[in-house]
Design a protein around this nucleic acid. Structure first.
Lengths: 338, 338
DNA sequence: GGTTTATCGAAAATCGTTTTGCATACGCAA
DNA sequence: TTGCGTATGCAAAACGATTTTCGATAAACC
């Protein structure tokens, strides 16, 4: 690898002059500037970022941690992060939660990164004790669960979103609506579930426990959706609509319905959450709550940059809004409840 | 940030001794070792990776470039890369091709990375002139197109795979089989298309140009699949099976067929390539050529490590094998061709 | 002729490690 | 007493850049 010295030697100038050219610092005559640039070209010289980062005490790189590297929901957010990072000449590294707690801290705090973006709505507790990080390094969180008191974060109000979604079903005439999703440590911590209950309550529909299906976290979502519907039908449970807490669960549910000879949406309406690509690929297309993933990524990175630049005026919490996207999988029930 | 000096001071030893403890070289008495570890704990000391990398001339980090950061096909490969990287205490950064050619070289060659893994089956030419990299930095490629003469790479033989797939359809009795996929600069560079033709030829079925549908690269795959089928049907083209060159195209095609009142697989059989998650989520489930994405990632990283460690015996080209996965979307045609 | 402005070189300090050579102990055996 | 292995400290060079300071030389200006 060519160094600054080599460039200086070839251009017949001193290393300081090369620095002056590169960083636009001090007086440099035009012809000297050209000579230096030519030497850089010729040697394929690229300034060593390690040395620069070490000296400058900043790397222009951020670490980004996702629960799962192949989960397209998070990856869309990551794409948003990359977009904004790129625009500001920043680079990022991607980690998934397969790392152990301790290793994270070490890697993240080792000087390689100027900050850390955490996409960990559910698993927040599983990883780094956030308090250990606070103050040591700029951190920016994505939460879909509850707002974080201390750290800068971006969040969506899924309680309200799910309430609106459920209320839409109710307004179409649905009364027996299944809720299916993850267990969470306590159901009252599940904003999606709370939103569902809000909607029932404000419409005077009693909560039927048999229509609530919560399964443990970290299971295969598709299978969960599939088996839960099979179980419901085996028990002879009657319902006209299903709210699933994400699109994959909904797709699993859809398969189970079809295999049992039920038509979506004629016999059962179905909704998801996330608006993954798959939601508009399945037949029938899936109604869902769109979470603006790319935008979330943008905002997370902007928040990170604000912290790195010590911009005290930057907002510590940003809400991004969801949209109810109505597609083919929802319609009024054939025989509206009395 | 605490440095090695601070640790040494607190433990009452010299900085060299701390190094000896950390790197396990030279003599260190047990009680000294304990004192040092305690000091490290207390100060939350984490060795500075920038300084270490600069000194060691290696960062234990590799750059990974994908055509698209939110394409789940590549992300599965990336997950495989991460898996192996992690096992060897390596870290990686993810880039997508939104970067410009020049910027890549700079970032990748700036000392931050020990190597570069390129997932660029189609766009290989669009990015870095590979020759510029060769020799400067370890590189490992994923190719699904043609084997690369110079650089270490992992490849799949899609010509053979597509041939087997098409032959399977033929063996079921299909004669009028549509091929749809990307254009490529020349059709003869498209291994999938070649495989399709191989199968027709060896079974004495004449190639019907009207059944070959190639569309330009970089278009939205889903829409391409959808519109191509619409166009075929509008022209009154008759066919009993479709080979799509990836799963998304196939899903788009599936939607078009359903909307035209055709049943899959009763009226038309359908196959894809990749075996994305979605292939087993759609109804009917999609038959496809499985590409072992995770394994590809593993092998890519292993190849990278071999290069970094200067292991001359490591193979420069590794073929991973595909599998024809038969699901619901394929069956014998209702009225076999005469 | 003196002062200012433009231009460049030389040198040093710094970032936090790793690594090496050399000095200094100590304990123990020959 | 000498010699050797073990255990530790100290100092210095190196990695490759940034930044600053200090000069030295011009040319330009009044």
């Amino acid at each position: 690898m060519a160094t600054r010295r080599d460039v200086a030697r070839l251009a017949g100038v001193s290393p300081s002059t090369v620095s002056r050219v590169l960083n636009d610092n001090g007086y440099v005559a035009d012809d000297v500037r050209k000579r230096v640039h030519r030497a850089i070209e010729e040697l394929n010289y690229v300034p060593n970022r390690l040395a620069r980062s070490l000296r400058m005490q900043q790397s222009r790189q951020v670490a980004c941690i996702t629960p799962s590297i192949s989960n397209s929901f998070y990856l869309e957010i990551v794409a948003g992060i990359e977009e904004t990072a790129l625009a500001h000449d920043y680079t990022f590294s991607l980690y998934s939660l397969t790392y152990e707690k301790r290793e994270y801290l070490d890697v993240v705090l080792s000087g390689f990164y100027d900050g850390m973006i955490l996409l960990a709505p559910y698993e927040m507790e599983k990883i780094v004790a956030l308090s250990e990080l606070a103050g040591r390094l700029p951190v920016s969180l994505y939460c879909d669960r509850e707002r974080h008191p201390d750290l800068p974060h971006v969040y969506v109000d899924l309680r309200r979103a799910m309430r609106e979604c459920t209320e839409h079903l109710i307004s179409l005439g649905h009364r027996r609506i299944v809720f299916m999703g993850y267990q969470f440590s306590r159901p009252t911590q599940n904003p999606r579930y709370l939103g569902y209950r809000d909607a029932l309550e404000s419409n005077g529909i009693p909560l039927d426990e048999s229509l609530t299906r919560l399964f443990p976290d970290y299971q295969d979502t598709l299978t969960c959706g599939y088996q839960t519907v099979c179980d419901l039908l085996d028990r002879g449970c009657s319902f006209t609509a299903i709210c699933a807490t994400n699109d994959l669960i909904a797709v699993g549910a859809m398969r189970a319905l079809v295999e049992h000879g039920l038509k979506v949406p004629d016999d059962v309406s179905l909704t998801g959450v996330d608006d993954l690509e798959i939601a508009s690929l399945v037949t029938p297309t899936l109604s869902t709550i769109r979470i603006p993933k790319r935008q979330i990524g943008n905002v997370l990175m902007e928040q990170m940059l604000a912290q790195i630049h010590g911009d005290a005026a930057a907002p510590r919490a940003v809400e991004v809004s969801t949209t109810l996207v109505l597609r083919e999988s929802v319609k009024a029930p054939a025989s509206p409840a009395p």
